[in-house]
Design a protein around this nucleic acid. Structure first.
Lengths: 181, 181
DNA sequence: AGGAACATTGAACATCGTTCAATAAAAAAT
DNA sequence: ATTTTTTATTGAACGATGTTCAATGTTCCT
């Protein structure tokens, strides 16, 4: 239902009807809708993880090109799973509620894909520095995808967005390597 | 009220009490809450615009350093106006409702600040290309700020985030210039 | 003053997530 | 096999919330 109507279109009553139980029975499976969204998010993150893994190992094994492929794969996944991908980020729960551990773990795994190629590219950096840089790189690409897929502003055709991402990732990596020398 | 409790904490009844009128009277000022959020967003965008303008003209006038200052200013503004800044991006309205023109215009102005220094840096590029690159740069910085200020994941101290942004912006610009030569 | 245009009110409506007493089903115990 | 205990399910009810609207004020022009 999230995939079809977005996270705002997920209603407990519709869901109950779809799975064939009473409205209240949903709360036997899940504490509240927050958890429901998080559990769907967990599945989405695992599928995303697989997509990035595939991109990581396919094609030119140079760190440069591997990282570009991962960025493009991220963009493609977001475009093909738009509402599910959005649900990962735009669902805010009450500030006092704490994320369960399994949800935090899911999110952390993403940076793993970036870390390894980046370590090959920047051998002088410490693991801590690499972790931070990997997160920054991910965030930068995420921003490009997020604003690029936003229909509210100028709609960018997907191929153009992919080119932009590839170009800027290459520039970032060039710049990072050059500065490290 | 958005600044204090976030966009999800904005309730028409609370608002009516605060401004001293009946609940229904809110709808004399505004068609619905979507418009209300957009109007607050417009004010926020104008304040953000001023902050970026100030950063643009203060200090070292080299395009490199100007763009770094703008990125840092964006980060600082987001940190200091967290909920208002979030309201700009995380509020989704029904897909069929169209954004009013004034709201779209407001958003476009932001890229202006990036365009000029970028044009100095990449004199070979056409205005169209520059516009696209400006948007990509903005999006990348936006992503770093957005995920960096997210408390759900590892909380990054603000000074560290500023350093990361400055570093990655410099790397991006270095890379863009090097590739252009 | 009279009346037309506009503004304000607050009750009512629809839609949510969530809770819970009542009930049914299943499992365990005798 | 029957009773008892535990568990699962139901759907009505509750409280919030955005939105509407008939009734009631208010303003202001002639």
């Amino acid at each position: 239902m999230i995939a079809e109507r977005g996270v705002a279109g997920l209603k407990t009553r519709d869901l109950a009807r779809e799975i064939g139980c009473a409205n209240g029975a949903v709360y036997n499976l899940v504490a509240d809708v927050d958890e429901l969204v998080l559990r769907v998010g967990s599945r989405t993150l695992h599928r995303l993880d697989k997509a990035l893994s595939a991109a990581e190992s396919a094609g030119d094994p140079s760190p440069h090109e591997t990282l570009v492929r991962i960025a493009i794969a991220y963009c493609d996944f977001a475009a093909e799973n738009l509402e599910l991908w959005r649900a990962l980020f735009e669902h805010r729960m009450a500030a006092d509620k704490i994320l369960p551990d399994w949800s935090i773990n899911d999110q952390m795994q993403l940076f793993r894909h970036i870390y390894h190629p980046l370590a090959l590219l920047l051998p002088e950096r410490s693991p801590e520095e690499l972790g931070i840089t990997a997160r920054s790189l991910f965030s930068a690409v995420h921003g490009m995808v997020a604003l690029g897929l936003e229909q509210k502003l100028v709609a960018v055709p997907l191929p153009a967005l992919r080119n932009e991402i590839a170009g800027l990732v290459r520039a970032m990596l060039d710049g990072l390597v050059a500065r490290a020398e």
